[in-house]
């Protein structure tokens, strides 16, 4: 089995290891939920052990701070405290640490929703590469649905809601929205138009995953949008020796993000899966970081740069482009 697939599977299971929740329909309420994962994993999934950074950030923003006003008009000190305590510093810091270490590598290696997209995209159907401009949509999702609406879109009672979770997030629908009502008759009774909308969004994304490489990551994930700039400013770095490239196209065929690695490696849309490095017959794509040992830096399957494969096998030749678990575009 491909090492990355194994890591993705293990990460998905560990993130959702509250197995008894899948039978009882109750979500985990232990101390681990104080922390979050660097991936999209709904904390209302019966199996989820940790919080979702997107949900947690919105909840902090909607809370508007923790100061209890002493009088009818909040004092300056109270207002200042509310701004301070109503900003998701912990989540921002956590995601910044993740970005500084590895950029979007968590998308390529750890995210359960990324795994789902990779698996569905393996189905043998014609593939489509949508216009690149659509990738900008994820930044709009981050700014409007995750930040601005929870902050400013308040109802007549002065309350706001986590708009991204409510109107868009298909991971919430898949992990919590389907399972919890299935396991709890009380919840089934109150499903309405909003649920129908969220199911439609989920089904549209699931269908798109078959034909388009990682559509959700490219167009709609706020985590991907937040981590994207860190691909240019993280300790982990990917490099391609473009001047030695023979344009065999092997890397483009397997790129899980639908990119051309020769020109777009480590761009904001690269999820650093290293599938391109795995299949490059000349081993021209490398990963480097201070925390990676030099001899195994460059190949996810453990082969050495430009040299022998594990077990002493010779590297693939230029014409050998069939090895990968490729999906064709």
């Amino acid at each position: 089995m491909n090492l990355r697939l194994l890591v993705q599977l293990v990460a998905s299971v560990v993130t959702n290891a509250n197995l008894k929740g899948f039978f009882t329909g109750k979500i985990y309420d232990g101390v681990l939920k104080r922390g979050c994962v660097p991936t999209l994993n709904c904390y209302s999934c019966p199996g989820a052990l940790f919080s979702c950074p997107v949900g947690a950030a919105q909840v902090t923003l909607t809370s508007g701070g923790t100061a209890e006003p002493a009088g009818p008009v909040p004092t300056l000190r109270e207002r200042l405290w509310n701004v301070l305590s109503g900003t998701p510093w912990f989540i921002l810091g956590f995601m910044t640490v993740v970005g500084a270490l590895a950029g979007r590598a968590t998308c390529g290696w750890l995210c359960p929703f990324g795994l789902l997209q990779d698996l569905l995209h393996r189905l043998p159907t014609p593939k489509w590469r949508p216009p690149k401009a659509m990738r900008l949509l994820k930044y709009l999702c981050l700014v409007v649905l995750v930040v601005l609406m929870p902050l400013f879109w308040v109802d007549s009672f002065g309350y706001s809601e986590p708009a991204y979770c409510k109107y868009l997030c298909p991971a919430g629908t898949l992990q919590g929205g389907i399972l919890l009502p299935l396991l709890n008759p009380d919840l089934r009774g109150v499903l309405g138009k909003l649920f129908a909308w969220k199911m439609t969004v989920l089904l549209l994304f699931l269908a798109a995953m078959v034909f388009v490489a990682r559509p959700f990551c490219s167009w709609a994930c706020p985590i991907g949008a937040f981590l994207a700039p860190f691909n240019r400013a993280s300790l982990l770095r990917l490099q391609v020796e473009a001047d030695r490239c023979v344009k065999c196209g092997a890397c483009r065929k397997v790129c899980v993000a639908g990119l051309d690695p020769v020109t777009e490696l480590d761009s904001g849309d690269c999820v650093r899966c290293l599938e391109c490095a795995r299949v490059c017959p000349l081993h021209l794509i490398h990963a480097e970081a201070p925390f990676l040992p030099a001899p195994t830096r460059t190949r996810p399957d453990g082969a050495q740069p430009g040299g022998a494969q594990p077990g002493g096998a010779q590297p693939a030749t230029v014409s050998d482009t069939s090895a990968p678990t490729a999906d064709s575009h």
Partner: peptide
């Protein structure tokens, strides 16, 4: 903040599941 995250994350999020 982490205490507030815990508060929220230990209850079912009705927005997440589409209610």
């Amino acid at each position: 903040e982490t205490a507030r995250i815990l508060d929220k994350a230990t209850q079912v999020c009705l927005q997440c599941i589409g209610i």
